[in-house]
Design a protein around this nucleic acid. Sequence first.
DNA 1: GGAAAAATCACATAAATATGTTAAAATGTC
DNA 2: GACATTTTAACATATTTATGTGATTTTTCC
Lengths: 210, 210
Amino acid sequence: MIRVVIYEDNPQFREGLTMLINGSDGFSVLASYKNCNNVAEEVEKWSPDVILMDINMPGTDGLEGLKKIREVNTEVKVLMLTVFDDNKNVFEALRNGANGYLLKKTPPAKLLEYIQDATLGGAPMTSSIATQVLKMFQVIPQSKNQDYCLSERETEVLQLLVDGFSYKMIASELFIAIDTVRSHIKKIYEKLHVNSKSEAVAKAFKDKLL
Amino acid sequence: MIRVVIYEDNPQFREGLTMLINGSDGFSVLASYKNCNNVAEEVEKWSPDVILMDINMPGTDGLEGLKKIREVNTEVKVLMLTVFDDNKNVFEALRNGANGYLLKKTPPAKLLEYIQDATLGGAPMTSSIATQVLKMFQVIPQSKNQDYCLSERETEVLQLLVDGFSYKMIASELFIAIDTVRSHIKKIYEKLHVNSKSEAVAKAFKDKLL
DNA sequence: GGAAAAATCACATAAATATGTTAAAATGTC
DNA sequence: GACATTTTAACATATTTATGTGATTTTTCC
């Protein structure tokens, strides 16, 4: 038996969901609420398997509700429900530990399937949402793996620069003369096409050299 | 009719897939190959709706194959197939535009459903993979929004430091005296608890201050 | 209107950095 | 062994940066 708690401000939709789920074998609604104002206590009280969470609600909204839930419970599966597939909300929800993201227009049969999918460790998403999620992956880390051919020693020195070491400190850290440090850094600047320490540090971060 | 091309080095598995798909209404296998050595031409030739792509293959493997496909075709849905849910491969595949990621042990009925799901814009994933993807979202941007209370002007100056400007350049950029730049930077160092330009730059990147 | 914070500028000085030139070992490769 | 690359190092010098101690003007906010 999959035990569900619902957060949804619209009374009709809330009732509809409850009837659908209670009317299906293997599913039962433990409770439903019209906002997340007391979500922490409610989740602790019922300890459901799945929570259906509307995003747009008066008072504490779905995203904040999700955060509060995750502060007290990382096990329960939380499926976000929304009318629009708003990019920013999707990202925020997944970042805060949502297990799935569904549009409200999802047909009832699919919804039940998705709920079950979530309990099995899946990440059910409406296809338009799934498309967005895939795009996020493609955008985020366009790791421009430019290779500047830094030698081992040069990489080491650059790492220390990034860590905030002065020439003097690097010299004593690596047991070499400060003039040698200078030499290395000069070479590093050439290879990275920069001419100051802070530019080199910035480039190291931007191009993920370390 | 959903038109499929298969890349899979194991002959048995390749044959099994082909028979399964060809034997199902609404699906047909256009071709199957045992490596990705000529993937670009093959995809252009068949222009399939869906490609099933094994990750581990001799010669050009699935990940490289995926990259080559995306260079010539961004429309075709590519589903990655693998025995293991290896974290790094999942990430690399999604980053390079895979549309889904399935374990080979996926039951035949599910597999057909997933293929269809992909054509409809979904992102079909085995639940263990889905779990990993969700975790990636939670890990990536742990935005430790530490607020160092930099003023507007200070933020501006820090930005220019990060961009590699010297004090002199900042002064002329902002139409202020170099001594004023010094004052701002001194204040910035205090607030960030650092005492050199490169440390400030590094901190700006680490804490995503800009 | 007055207190607090932010932004502006000046002068001084020690320390650190950038740049140039040069060159001897050490290491790796064909 | 010859060659290229890397690592090491010294010396010189101009520029930049870090730090201190003031002080004046704006802006903000109650």
